[in-house]
Amino acid sequence: MYLLIFLSRRLLQGAAVLLIVTFAIFTLLRVVPGDPARLIVGGMAPDEVVEQKAEELGLNDPIPVQFIKYLGEIAQGDLGNSFVRARSGSMGGAVAFDDPSRGDRAEVLDLIIERVPLTLQLAGLAVLFSLIISFPLGVAAGLNPGAWQDKLAFFAGSIFVSVPNFWLGIVLALLFSVHLGILPSIGYKGFEYTILPAFVLAIEMSPFIIRTLSVSIAQIMQEEFISVAPLRGLMRSRIVGAHAIRNASIPLLNLFGIQLGSLLGGVLVIEFIFDYPGLGRLTINAVLQRDFPLIQGIAIFISAMFVFINIAVDLAASFIDPRLEY
């Protein structure tokens, strides 16, 4: 019962957040300069064609009217068609205004869903890498507060958080692709293309994980149930592994929910640098091409993911620690 109440309340709040995001992005895109009708028909089209296109797309209506219309379409599961991208995958930027292929625009939802698996693969591998980097550092620091392990974790964290991600991407590509020739770094033709971008992303995430782990483990080790555990005959490895890390995983989960936004920001830049064909590169290109429906679709999709993941994080936390309330 509690679960139901919790879920319905959070979903309702999530819907409110989504509505605000949609409205904000929608308005923002229509306020900033840049005429999408001109973009769709191409630079060479006569003014009448541009005007006709704008009328056809409803771009001349007042913004609130456009917004209500858009909401109606979303309610039917239709995120609209891209302004610029053809179904065949070509950009269509240079096609003449009377070319028939201009009429055939890709659906926004398809464009997004197509890219999601690659981005999830990148994000998943990055989380794995960052856990591999952060766990030894963070746990060792948490178990030995004030000792050299703690200082090492502190300095590693301070340096990792200071690394500009695009620069690290360039340096790693230079080292591993150009000089050593071990790993590819541009585009995507197989799993190995995910490794370098994922590593850069992992370095970007790890300082937060190291910090959270070391702080929460140090705190938990002070608790009574840990100090009596040796009296119960438990081995130290079991105390740390089963008790301390289990309890420390809750702040870690919460961190993940909070950091998701900046993680996505990192994905964006890194996909752009490595020319990795995921959601991030799609976003940057959509923004640079003023492809309104696509930008809106991506923003809604990302915020929806954000809402759901945060609900899932809270649920997971309450399963790990039943004392937590929803």
């Binding site: 709040q13 995001v21 904000a24 936004g261 920001g265 923003a299 915020s303």
Partner: peptide, 23 residues
């Protein structure tokens, strides 16, 4: 607080690119 949540759920870099890309 809902506006804050909404703001947190859009990566700021998307906003920045969207605005600076044209102005």
């Amino acid at each position: 607080m809902r506006i804050t949540d909404a703001q947190l759920s859009i990566p700021m870099i998307i906003l920045a690119i969207a605005i600076l890309g044209v102005s």
